[in-house]
């Protein structure tokens, strides 16, 4: 059929794990916007959800780190984190192995992606799923872009990957939704956790919502590290979704720094 939904959202573990410590007014408005995303995905008729994530050493390590990986499993499991810490119970998540195989085959025409029939979800995927498909009844295709272990996937390759994902989604008869998950500026899991550069975030989101490829790809990793922290490397997931949206503009329907969540929380949808 085609790509029927494209959006992005944040995935920080504090979103669930430290929920009670956030300003309830801002937190609940963020949750309401995640609920809007959930309903939009349902309304799109999506038969599977591709989650483009920036995983954090749950499956991939420096012994064999892929620039890209796409899941091809019949089912997945998660979270790898302590359930009490993340406040999400361990569960099984349905995959879509045959659909994955067809998507991977098409992506490989232009991008060398790894694939994996085993995948343990960390907060980078399970936190968004907790809100977007809380009953875990929508088949998931996990995707990873290396945003953690340098040398990182170059931004322009993340863009090319997003274009390949779009072409692949459009080549199958199923209706596909795609969601990118990551943070903008943040310094997660360091003593600086909670530090957020709102101005940097808003500047990036301006480029993002206008789907300004040149502007989004103009950052160097050194600049991002200095100005937006190591968490800023996760803009790769947003860039891939912008590419998958193929020129469409985004509606950023929520953005607010929530320090105890360690990130400027974001929800956005492309007008495909």
């Amino acid at each position: 059929m085609s790509l029927v939904y494209a959006g992005v959202c944040s995935h920080a573990p504090g979103i669930t794990g430290r929920a009670e410590r956030a300003d309830p007014v801002v937190r609940d408005e963020f949750y309401r916007n995640l609920e809007i995303m959930r309903q939009d995905i349902i309304d799109s008729g999506a038969e599977a959800l591709v989650v483009v994530a920036a995983e954090h050493f749950a499956n991939f390590f420096m012994n064999n780190m892929p620039a890209f990986c796409i899941g091809m499993g019949e089912e997945y499991e998660g979270p790898i984190e302590d359930p009490e810490w993340l406040k999400i119970e361990k569960t099984k998540i349905p995959g879509a192995s045959d659909l994955s195989k067809r998507i991977i085959t098409e992506v490989m025409q232009t991008v060398d992606t790894a694939f994996a029939e085993e995948w343990k979800f960390d907060h980078g995927i399970i936190v968004p799923l907790h809100f977007l498909t809380p009953n875990y009844d929508l088949p998931i295709i996990p995707v990873n872009i290396n945003c953690q272990g340098p040398p990182l996937t170059p931004l322009h390759r993340a863009w090319d990957f997003g274009e390949a994902l779009r072409r692949a989604c459009d080549s199958v008869p199923e209706k596909i939704a795609i969601v990118g998950t990551g943070g903008i500026s943040h310094w997660p899991a360091t003593p600086d956790s909670g530090k957020i550069d709102e101005a940097w975030d808003l500047d990036f989101l301006e480029r993002f919502k206008n789907n300004d490829k040149e502007a989004m790809l103009s950052y160097t990793d050194a600049e991002t590290y200095d100005d937006a922290g190591q968490g800023g490397f996760e803009i790769r997931t947003f860039i891939a979704i912008a590419a998958a949206a193929r020129g469409a503009k985004a509606n950023v329907h929520f953005y607010a720094p929530i320090p105890i969540f360690a990130v400027g929380c974001t929800c956005a949808k492309f007008e495909l």
Partner: peptide
């Protein structure tokens, strides 16, 4: 590695939690 401290030991959540 890339997870160095940049905030001179500042607690970036304390003030916002007080607001919360």
């Amino acid at each position: 590695g890339v997870y160095t401290m940049t905030g001179s030991g500042k607690n970036f959540t304390a003030s916002t939690e007080a607001k919360s």
